[in-house]
Amino acid sequence: MPTPPGLPVALVTGAGRGIGAGVALALSREGYAVALTARSREQLDETAAACPGPTLVLPADLTSPGAVDELVDHVEEQWAAPEVVVANAGAGVSASVERTTDEQWQQMLDLNLTAPFRLLRRTIPAMKAAGHGRIVVVASVAAKLGEPYISAYTASKHGVLGLVRSAAMELARTGVTVNAVCPGYVDTPMTEATVRGIVAKTGRTPEEARAALEAKQPINRLITVEEVVEAILTCVRNGGMTGQGLNVDGGGLQS
């Protein structure tokens, strides 16, 4: 449907649950018309139902060739070019380096690095033409720090932080900012999957596995979705901040 007059447009990937759903709801409350994408229509419909403002539900697999271009084309045709883009879609895989398969490696690069690159490439021209834009990539503290058994994930997140930094410098005089938010372990379904993986591989109880992840943050708890969303909103609101990787990890990685 047409965008109500005066409403800016935001696009959020991975908007079906967790951080993506949280930021979509927050942007809707801030007065944005929000385009939502993820693989699951059912989850997107739930997010859309919670948003007080207008939404577009656009299921897509962003790793498919051409999917990002088709997604943004649809938003522009139905509404207008997004002036806020939050690249949140992502996934993790756990394996030692010698046990990481080519398929696992490629999966991490495709979703965590190539998809955000394609999203930036497609949305930057309209932002430059408008003289205003905000791009926020949800990375991870793994974009700055190596941990064992997540080499493919870590490599993809290091790569996407490099993309953010280079794009920010290219766009510094255009009115377009590009930042990353780098959470620690967040209380989301993705972390629950990590807990299940620890249980399966180590024989620990779910409670023990969760406690181990909590202990990685000096505050000794998981980060909340709301804490990550607030950091994303800071990147959206603050035009003087660009090229940054904003840590939200309870003090684990100080910078």
Rank of each mutant, 00 (worst) to 15 (best):
D73M: 02
A168P: 03
A129Q: 14
A49S: 10
S151H: 04
G16C: 04
L246M: 13
Q254W: 13
A130Q: 06
A67E: 05
V85N: 03
L25N: 00
A130F: 12
R173G: 09
M108L: 15
V199T: 07
A211Q: 12
W79F: 12
Q104L: 10
V164W: 02
M241S: 04
Q254C: 14
H74N: 13
P189T: 05
G162Y: 07
V85R: 08
A10Y: 00
C235H: 11
V229E: 05
M108Y: 06
P5M: 01
P59Y: 10
M169E: 14
V160I: 11
I232A: 10
E192Y: 10
T194C: 00
R29C: 00
S40W: 08
P218Y: 06
A95C: 10
L27A: 09
V12I: 12
T47H: 02
A143L: 02
A50H: 04
Q78C: 13
E207N: 04
L7N: 00
A95V: 04
A211L: 10
A193L: 15
T13L: 01
I124S: 03
G159S: 11
D61G: 08
G197A: 02
P183C: 12
E230L: 06
T224F: 03
P206S: 14
L25Y: 10
E226A: 14
G6I: 08
V138H: 09
E227H: 10
A193Y: 07
V12M: 03
R99S: 14
A35I: 07
S28P: 08
D102N: 11
L145V: 15
V199A: 05
S140M: 04
A115R: 08
C182D: 05
G131V: 01
S28L: 05
T114W: 11
L71K: 12
P8W: 12
R41E: 15
R221H: 05
V164M: 09
T37K: 05
P82R: 11
A33N: 01
L222C: 07
R237S: 13
T234M: 14
M190E: 14
I19L: 13
T242I: 06
P65V: 07
A91E: 13
A209Y: 00
S94V: 15
I124Q: 01
A143T: 01
A209I: 08
G18C: 08
L71F: 09
E230Y: 00
V195F: 00
Y149T: 12
D102G: 15
E103K: 10
R173S: 15
P125A: 03
R41W: 07
R196C: 00
V86N: 01
M169P: 00
T242H: 03
E230A: 15
N238C: 13
C182M: 01
E42W: 00
I219C: 00
W79V: 03
S255Y: 15
E226I: 00
E207A: 13
T242Y: 10
E226M: 01
W105M: 04
L36Y: 04
V141E: 07
E46D: 14
D61T: 09
A209C: 11
T47N: 02
A80C: 09
Q107N: 11
G31A: 05
D110A: 13
A95T: 06
I232D: 09
V248Q: 08
V57P: 09
E170M: 01
N238Y: 11
Q244A: 15
Q107R: 14
P59A: 08
A143R: 01
S40K: 07
G203D: 02
V176L: 09
G245F: 05
L111N: 06
G20D: 08
I135R: 12
G53A: 07
G197W: 01
E76P: 01
G243W: 03
L113P: 02
P206G: 11
